[in-house]
């Protein structure tokens, strides 16, 4: 049975290999997860890999909005992320959800910016209610 390593160590190694262009490491990771029975932790591994990549300059940002984004808005978002994180490359993953009503929720590994109308209404309902 493979010795269990901490998730951080594994994902850091995988991120490094991915940056070097070695895609075979993905299969190795899958095999490792199966062997150590950590399939359920896959999402966490992916997050940690994204986090390691972000540290090394490759940022993957999740953007959630009520409507689809225009090219110009995407450009603004890219520039914003690059400025905030010092990233060398930014990849956007778009999610359109009408329940956010308006504004955007921008999530990069370890950080989040939420200016959606939905969040503001939740704040009104919860935090101000208790004041």
């Amino acid at each position: 049975m493979a010795r269990r390593l901490s998730r951080r160590v594994v994902t850091s190694f995988v991120a490094e290999r991915l940056q070097e262009g070695d895609k075979s490491v993905v299969k190795q990771l899958a095999a490792y997860l199966v062997t150590t029975r950590q399939i359920r932790m896959l999402a966490l591994y992916v997050r940690d890999i994204e986090s390691s990549l972000a540290k090394k300059g490759d940022v993957i940002a999740d953007v959630t909005t009520a409507f689809s984004l225009s090219a110009e808005t995407k450009k603004h978002i890219n520039a914003f992320v690059a400025a905030e994180t010092g990233a060398l490359s930014v990849s956007l993953r778009e999610h359109v959800k009408s329940e956010v009503l308006g504004g955007l929720r921008l999530h990069i590994p370890g950080k989040e910016l939420d200016t959606t109308v939905q969040r503001q209404l939740t704040t009104l309902r919860t935090q101000l209610k208790k004041a």
Partner: peptide
């Protein structure tokens, strides 16, 4: 009421 165009303006302001 809210539409795409004002939403983009909102996003730009937020950023």
């Amino acid at each position: 009421v809210h539409t795409k165009k004002p939403d983009e303006a909102l996003i730009a302001e937020a950023l």
